[in-house]
């Protein structure tokens, strides 16, 4: 078919940031998938709770300390996380590098505390359905911290190489920060279920 040129695109940037970028939308779509997964896991918890005559089943409610500590760490981590996103938007490589180191630490600390959170549940996954449900919730969330931490570590390494000074990579940093926000926000209802619903 003959072609008639009606539009010139030569002036467009080589990469769009934020909502212009395909990876941003991809990240959002994956967040939607995982958010649905979290919502369903919580629904499983609530469903089993609605059937049980007593809740928790044959167990004391979980110990509050480690879980609350994790919550606090996660909430505090939002501050550097928002900053890193801003610096990435400004393409400030030096600040982004430093912040990535911080974010790596903010990924590792909740994981360390979480090691103590599992015993603090005061029930095993194979004791009864209540135990299974809270281990599922906690396990699911832990895998998200681990994957985002791995992502952050690789990204930190990458930004310290010559590949760092690149709009595309700054976009990756922004997407990673957005995902971390999601990991933190998704924790809050889970925290509420595991620790506070069991105390009602």
């Amino acid at each position: 078919m003959r072609e008639r040129i009606v539009l010139h695109l030569g002036e467009l940037p080589l990469h769009g940031m934020g909502m212009q970028s395909t990876t941003w939308w991809g990240t959002l779509a994956f967040m939607l998938i995982e958010g649905t997964g979290f919502a369903l896991a919580i629904a499983v918890y609530l469903y089993l709770m609605s059937l049980a005559t007593t809740w928790p089943i044959n167990a004391p409610p979980p110990d509050l300390l480690p879980g609350t500590l994790v919550t606090l760490i996660l909430l505090v981590s939002l501050v550097p996380n928002i900053l890193i996103s801003r610096w990435a938007a400004q393409q400030d490589l030096r600040k982004v590098r430093i912040a990535l180191v911080f974010m790596s630490i903010f990924g590792i600390t909740p994981l360390i505390v979480r090691i103590f959170e599992f015993p603090a549940l005061r029930i095993s996954w194979d004791t009864n359905a209540y135990g299974s449900a809270i281990w599922l919730l906690l396990g699911l969330h832990t895998t998200h911290i681990i994957t985002d931490l791995a992502d952050t570590l690789v990204l930190a390494a990458l930004m310290f190489t010559s590949h760092g000074q690149n709009r595309r990579r700054f976009g990756d940093v922004q997407d990673n920060a957005m995902y971390w926000n999601f990991v933190v926000v998704a924790w809050l209802p889970i925290y509420g279920c595991i620790y506070w619903l069991a105390r009602l």
């Binding site: 998938i33 995982e34 649905t36 997964g37 369903l40 896991a41 499983v44 089993l48 059937l51 049980a52 089943i57 996954w125 194979d126 004791t127 009864n128 359905a129 209540y130 135990g131 299974s132 449900a133 281990w135 599922l136």
Partner: peptide, 27 residues
Amino acid sequence: PAIMVASTSLILDRLVGTHFFNPAEGG
């Protein structure tokens, strides 16, 4: 995601002894 949650819970019930679907233990 619903079937992922379902099949994961089933595998867990079968492999590590969780009780999501076991009425005797609150499932």
